[in-house]
Simulated assay, not measured.
Amino acid sequence: MKTNSKLFTIGLVTAWYSSNIGVLLLNKYLLSNYGFRYPIFLTMCHMTACSLLSYIAIAWMKMVPMQTIRSRVQFFKISALSLVFCVSVVFGNISLRFLPVSFNQAVGATTPFFTAVFAYLMTLKREAWLTYLTLVPVVAGVIIASGGEPSFNLFGFIMCISATAARALKTVLQGILLSSEGLGMFMPFAPALFCMA
């Protein structure tokens, strides 16, 4: 039984990484190579697929218990998380039209930097100095990569940085809202809100 549980967990993690990489490469192919000009439509397809698959996982497969929204406050908090996540995916898809996937992923490596900044600004939580020190080479590497990127596009770069910042903001908001008293119900909605983070 324990082995089955471990295999199931490994399968879920593998499926998450595979779908993440697959969607990223497919979006890049459609937006750049194929010339598809509607990144927001791709985001709508992404969100629809996440919602449907989450509903199947919750309602039919019973992976987590179905729960209802109990108050207007919970509804607004879920909506805020959804909106920030949607913005990060839209900006990420737009950036893929102008930047190579490799550079896009390099910029995405700055997510911990933005997360630390937002965590400090929103919760006044300070990390250990060693944490901040480890972020310096990551940010420096992205700056160096930006200067040497042959297909650098300023608009694409701004969209990519904005997507990365939105992803970090979502992480901080998620931590705040999930730890709020009486808001444990958020976890069942996690697949819908946070698939393909």
Rank of each mutant, 00 (worst) to 15 (best):
T3L: 15
T3G: 02
N4M: 11
S5N: 12
L7V: 12
I10D: 02
I10C: 09
L12C: 15
V13A: 12
V13S: 05
A15G: 14
S18M: 14
S18N: 05
N20R: 11
G22N: 09
L25A: 13
N27L: 05
Y29G: 06
L31Q: 00
Y34C: 02
F36P: 00
Y38D: 12
Y38I: 09
Y38C: 03
I40F: 06
F41M: 11
M44T: 14
M44C: 13
H46F: 07
M47S: 10
L52R: 08
A59S: 11
A59E: 09
A59C: 09
W60C: 10
W60K: 15
K62P: 03
M63R: 14
M66F: 10
T68E: 09
R70D: 09
R72V: 12
Q74D: 11
F76R: 14
F76A: 11
F76C: 08
K77Y: 11
I78Q: 08
S79W: 08
S79D: 04
S79K: 10
L81A: 04
F85G: 15
F91A: 15
F91E: 03
G92T: 12
I94Y: 06
S95N: 08
L96T: 00
R97P: 00
S102G: 09
S102C: 05
F103T: 03
F103L: 09
N104E: 07
A106W: 06
V107C: 01
V107D: 01
V107R: 03
V107P: 00
A109N: 11
T110F: 04
T110N: 07
T111P: 05
F114M: 05
T115M: 15
V117K: 02
V117H: 03
Y120H: 10
L121G: 05
L121D: 04
M122K: 08
L124W: 08
E127F: 14
E127I: 03
A128Q: 13
A128Y: 07
T131C: 05
L133V: 12
T134D: 03
L135A: 03
L135T: 05
V138A: 10
V142P: 00
I144E: 06
I144T: 08
E149G: 00
F152K: 04
L154C: 06
M159D: 06
M159Q: 11
C160L: 08
A163H: 02
T164G: 00
T164Y: 00
A165R: 01
A166V: 00
A166N: 01
A166I: 01
A166E: 01
K170I: 05
T171V: 15
V172F: 00
L173E: 13
L173C: 10
Q174I: 05
G175N: 11
I176G: 04
L183A: 06
M185S: 15
M187N: 13
P188R: 10
F189D: 01
F189T: 00
P191W: 01
P191S: 07
P191N: 04
L193D: 00
M196A: 13
M196I: 14
